[in-house]
């Protein structure tokens, strides 16, 4: 797959053991066991409401889990605010709806966290922002406000904003599903480049072409459970579970 330093892989980055979560009485995550190793790219798919978003949102504690252990890069997620802060510094997240800050310029969006969370001096943060904006191909729009950009451009800014914290893990929650078809590619290209560069990634996406090409492992979720995990070749060619087969036939033939 052409990844740099393939033998550096292996350290456990995310470890979920018997994780359960409820929304009120509703059991959203049921006994989730998941290990993600350094530089791994994991793609999660599954029907709507199966708990994919909830699962990745527990990893940076946007959602709290109620049972089981969840350890991110050696830090256990508990109610300890210090631990949550540590984890959030190391985990970047990209949302379906971009969630850019509309009152800040593109550069302002990218600089905010480096300045206030990493305490970088302004000029360093600004240089970092410019470098990242170049990397996602949007440097010429740095002075604009998010509302003046296309969806694809906004999502690339959102990726640059997450990268500005220099995270060791990136979470993507359906980053392309709010985009017009012609903009999907530009965002996937950026993500592909990140994966090639060795970023540890968990992506919730239904872009199966992208998954086939970039993922190290596919995960299928249904009803709050991980139903099946497999390398993409096996996952697409002959899934073990009937539910997976059904889902794939629906998603690949529409």
């Amino acid at each position: 797959m052409g990844k740099a330093m393939a033998n550096d892989r292996g350290a456990l980055m995310i470890e979920m053991r018997h994780v359960d979560k409820w929304f009120g009485a509703f059991h959203v995550l049921k006994d989730i066991n998941l290990e993600v190793r350094r530089q791994e790219v994991v793609v999660i798919c599954g029907p709507s409401g199966s708990g994919k978003s909830t699962l990745i949102r527990t990893i940076n504690r946007l959602e709290e889990h109620q049972r089981g252990d969840l350890i991110v890069d050696g830090t256990e997620l508990t109610n300890d605010v210090k631990n949550i802060e540590t984890v959030r510094r190391e985990v970047g997240m990209v949302f379906q709806q971009f969630n850019l800050f509309p009152h800040l310029t593109v550069r302002g969006n990218v600089m905010l966290a480096p300045v206030w969370v990493r305490k970088l001096p302004k000029h360093e943060a600004s240089a970092l922002a410019d470098e990242l904006l170049r990397r996602v191909g949007i440097f010429d729009q740095a002075e604009k406000f998010p509302g003046q950009l296309s969806g694809g451009q906004q999502q690339r800014v959102a990726i640059a904003r997450a990268l500005a914290m220099q995270p060791r893990i990136m979470l993507f929650d359906e980053p392309t599903s709010a985009l017009d078809p012609e903009m999907i590619k530009e965002v996937l290209d950026v993500m592909r480049e990140l994966a090639t560069g060795g970023m540890t990634m968990i992506c919730v996406t239904h872009e199966m072409g992208f998954a086939r090409e970039v993922a190290d492992r596919m995960i299928f979720m249904d009803g709050g459970q991980i139903v099946e995990q497999a390398p993409p070749a096996q996952f697409f060619a002959n899934p073990r579970e009937e539910r997976t087969r059904l889902f794939l036939s629906q998603i690949l033939h529409h």
Binding site: R88, G92, N99, F101, L112, A113, W116, V117
Partner: peptide, 26 residues
Amino acid sequence: ARGQEEAAAALGLTYWQTTAFIVLPQ
């Protein structure tokens, strides 16, 4: 928008930072 505070939290901003730079200005 609800996503605003989530985005700020995901970046590691504290409650007061989020309030001062994201929530109140908007």
